[in-house]
Design a protein around this nucleic acid. Sequence first.
DNA 1: CCTGTCTAATTTAACGTTTCACTATTTAAT
DNA 2: ATTAAATAGTGAAACGTTAAATTAGACAGG
Lengths: 318, 318
Amino acid sequence: MATVSYVLNDKGNISEETRKRVLDVAERLGYRPSGAARSLKTRKTGNIGVYLPGFAGPVFGEILQALHDAVFPLGFEIIACSTQQSDRLLVERHVDGAIILNSFITDDTIEQIQSADYPVVVMERIVKMPHVSCVVADNCKGSYMAVKHLLDIGRKNIALIVGNPESHENSQRLEGAKKAFQEAGIDISTVPIVHGAFSEEIGVYAMTSILQSYKDVDGVFCFNDEMAIGAIKAAMRAGKSVPGDIAVIGFDDIYIGSCINPALSTIRVDKWSWGHLAATTLVDMINNGSPGRLITLPTKLIVRQSTADPVFGYSNNK
Amino acid sequence: MATVSYVLNDKGNISEETRKRVLDVAERLGYRPSGAARSLKTRKTGNIGVYLPGFAGPVFGEILQALHDAVFPLGFEIIACSTQQSDRLLVERHVDGAIILNSFITDDTIEQIQSADYPVVVMERIVKMPHVSCVVADNCKGSYMAVKHLLDIGRKNIALIVGNPESHENSQRLEGAKKAFQEAGIDISTVPIVHGAFSEEIGVYAMTSILQSYKDVDGVFCFNDEMAIGAIKAAMRAGKSVPGDIAVIGFDDIYIGSCINPALSTIRVDKWSWGHLAATTLVDMINNGSPGRLITLPTKLIVRQSTADPVFGYSNNK
DNA sequence: CCTGTCTAATTTAACGTTTCACTATTTAAT
DNA sequence: ATTAAATAGTGAAACGTTAAATTAGACAGG
């Protein structure tokens, strides 16, 4: 038994002859090691739990792909769990660590997981606990760039369509926007801020209400791309041209934003890097017991037609 | 030890008093059962392996969601694996069964998995093996409806943009289309068939070549929505109106198809039902040892603007 | 009072690996 | 020639559960 184990794991001292013999017999018998027994003994499962609010959103697919691609070659697999409540039978079994990209999961739950000695990586907010790393986009800087860009192309009356006020992302994005206004000498209290969730419908609704209440708005920064797409639709339906009358910029850089007409300007968060960083950080914590740390992911301004600056000759196609 | 086990699993005869006592101590000690040990003993993991070619596609997110939602309340979790090669360390550990929606995984591999007594559900082709169920869309009928619809709205010169020729989906869709042409008395050999893969770029390319080679084509059936979207883009870029000059219909009913302009007519495959059927079938095989069976999922014609029939007064918005 | 049934709790043997400790053999060093 | 070190292989305990078999009482029927 021991010899077989050593052969299969390339450990210990075994002659080339017996190694061959073991391998042959294993092959002939169709032997497959039991993951359960192995996990029991080694206290490793080779699984990573990923907690999302859902699979269908435009970002989650790309992130899952990045996580999987980073983790698979290292011998791990992904247990994906979508949940809108924090309470279910989370981790508790079969995983070596967890990646959380789900604001429905409370700090309390994370505390429980990490205090059971599971390393955790959180991707959408900042949590300070010993076994928890955070890999977050630089929302503040990104937001700053978005507002600055609208100002740079000469927009004077900018409105914000913000997201879920409880979310960490939202408050960071708000902070960055404020900073840009401040630097431009604009009193933040004069900026129309329409609250909403992060969905396309809310974007439609929010833009409609802006058009009614603030007739001179000529630039809108939406705190994510989905709302921005809704906002563009609403503006065009109301007979406004984008970016002619109103320039619109979003945040995240979801794929569909590049397809619509006018193509959406946005702040890019590179999903591949984000996922890879989160994954490798977690694996490092699992394998080497590294402590939690904070990693910030840079963001990048992507200028497309929805904020094309007529002055500098971007053409507004159609 | 046994008593604790019985309490935790609601089995055997235990007095209310000791049950309480056990539960209390467990709570106080923060006791968490070991999934590995439990799996070792019960030979169940509570995990289901899902094999996709990738996470990012427009269908996979919805399917994953449906699978997860169906399976989670039954006490299972999903191990998702995206792979473009068949050979990697597949199942082999930690799963009670597998769901395959990935043409990269060969019949040989499936044979191996099922012969190791893992039940398998295949979602994109038909495989006849004892432990394998197939849950497939009615591609043939759907395809038939698509062509029939183009004929019904008066299109005389229909072209096909087909997908990957090796795929089961493709051959079924081809068969259905042929049947519709046959019934209408059209010689299939006169129908332009452009080959390609299932991607948007190929759709662009295929439509461009159709416009060059077959000037009188007034209707195109693309074997999936992504190609159809590419085809519409290509047609419009070439100055054709859709559906005025060329009606276009796709297959699958991906979300984005309903957003584009003109909105894409298509054959709907309900992702929710598809996923739920696959999931419940697999769980039934796992729990009750049910044998493999074949389930066909109905498809449905969805008429939108890209095939709006001017005769019957559908308006082509702009 | 004996026997049988029922409930409650306990003992014990797995489940299939890994790994420490050990033996036996060979090779090297003095 | 003796000892030490390296190489190959084996035995057995342990990982944390479950479940079959067993024990110990309590209660009922004859």
